[in-house]
Write a protein that binds this DNA or RNA. Structure first.
Lengths: 217, 217
DNA sequence: ACCTGAACACCGTTCAAGT
DNA sequence: ACCTGAACACCGTTCAAGT
């Protein structure tokens, strides 16, 4: 009757739970219950909760498309990979937050990493710069996804931040008051595209390798 | 004998606990115990755990220096504020992760926000761009602090990510293999300074406002 | 009004005892 | 060897009962 226990079945059940109930809802006890067993039984296949979370994260990252339309320029392909990563994290609640506590180091994370390094190489970015650049880009993807998830899952229609910012008077904080519309504008995708442009422009402009001086000494 | 309960005493005790035991160690029960009372008593002063976490975060952000040496260029002052923010988050374990789950919207967060907006205005950045730019910079500060905290608090001397990356073979992922030294180089402060340069260069180069076309139509 | 002990509904993890 | 029920040491939150 009952499907046999396995690491794979456990991770699948956990991811399913995460999607439906969020990060707090993905407990060992609930995963076990979903598989018709007790929490203790999971320890035969998984070291502990942290390890399960890392497995769940990497399984979800399988959904990141690292081979978008083959013929376009490196810039478009880079943007497409990062956008795909971003959307995978935003799509199901809790995953972005999970990515912030469990450093992704599984096979799918490595696949994404390798792809990004290849694209930066194609862009002419030197090795040391590319190494730090992928870290920065992935940090933004994860952080931006967390921010967008929090905003979306907030039961408040407006959100605490928006309320606080709306309550700021011009005499207290004139610039916050003046920018209050722009600060809370919820258009997550437009922000993402703009941030991508910023990061790329900055990275291309800030190589770590010492450049040969332009003028003679 | 026992000091009277108050919101302020609760937040202070909680921050103290956070610094000594990390995010998991800061429970309502332990905060109550530190104040010689029961957890239920805290609910007279604080809505729930989330609210307490937000208060603790903002209290810690009081340590962010928004008025560094008055006479230097906007760029140096901007870097100093962000560096101060970064170090406050990194200094005590758990705070950076807390900043990722509780959107900071208290008075100290607003003070930092206003300062950053003023500095970008001084830099000649237009309003809409500045609004998104502060968000991006704060996202990096928080994300970078989380990453550095995780690395530091990892009991592993090397860390899981470093192990995984070290184990990657040249034939699997040639670029990760080639960049393995740079990818895991733990020099957090150098990375921070580089990332700051990248962000500033990118922001100055990517205004949201439509620019007047350079050439005639 | 303010405070609190006990209870409720959960957790992750361990371990002796089963098959 | 594999599995598991019960136990252990925790959680956040509620609420009736105290002063």
């Amino acid at each position: 009757m009952k499907p046999p226990l396995s690491r794979d079945a456990i991770v699948r059940a956990a991811l399913d739970l995460l999607q439906r109930e969020g990060l707090e809802g993905m407990s060992l006890r609930k995963v076990a219950a979903a598989l018709d067993t007790g929490a203790a039984s999971l320890y035969a296949y998984v070291d502990d909760l942290r390890a399960l979370q890392a497995l769940v994260l990497d399984r979800a990252l399988a959904g990141v498309d690292t081979a978008p339309r083959g013929r376009s320029a490196w810039r478009d392909r880079l943007a497409a990979v990062l956008r795909s990563h971003f959307h995978v994290l935003v799509k199901n609640p809790g995953l972005a937050q999970l990515a912030m506590k469990a450093i992704p180091a599984g096979p799918n994370a490595l696949r994404v990493l390798e792809t990004l390094l290849a694209l930066l190489e194609e862009a002419g970015v030197d090795g040391p710069t590319a190494a730090w650049a992928v870290d920065l880009m992935l940090l933004y993807v994860t952080g931006g996804a967390v921010e967008q998830s929090l905003r979306r899952d907030d039961p408040d229609p407006l959100g605490l931040l928006a309320q606080q910012i709306g309550a700021v008077t011009a005499s207290e904080h004139p610039r916050i008051h003046a920018a209050r519309g722009e600060l809370v504008s919820g258009d997550g995708d437009a922000r993402f595209e703009w941030a991508l442009e910023v990061l790329l422009a900055g990275i291309l402009d800030t190589p770590r390798a010492v450049r040969r001086p332009t003028r003679a000494p």
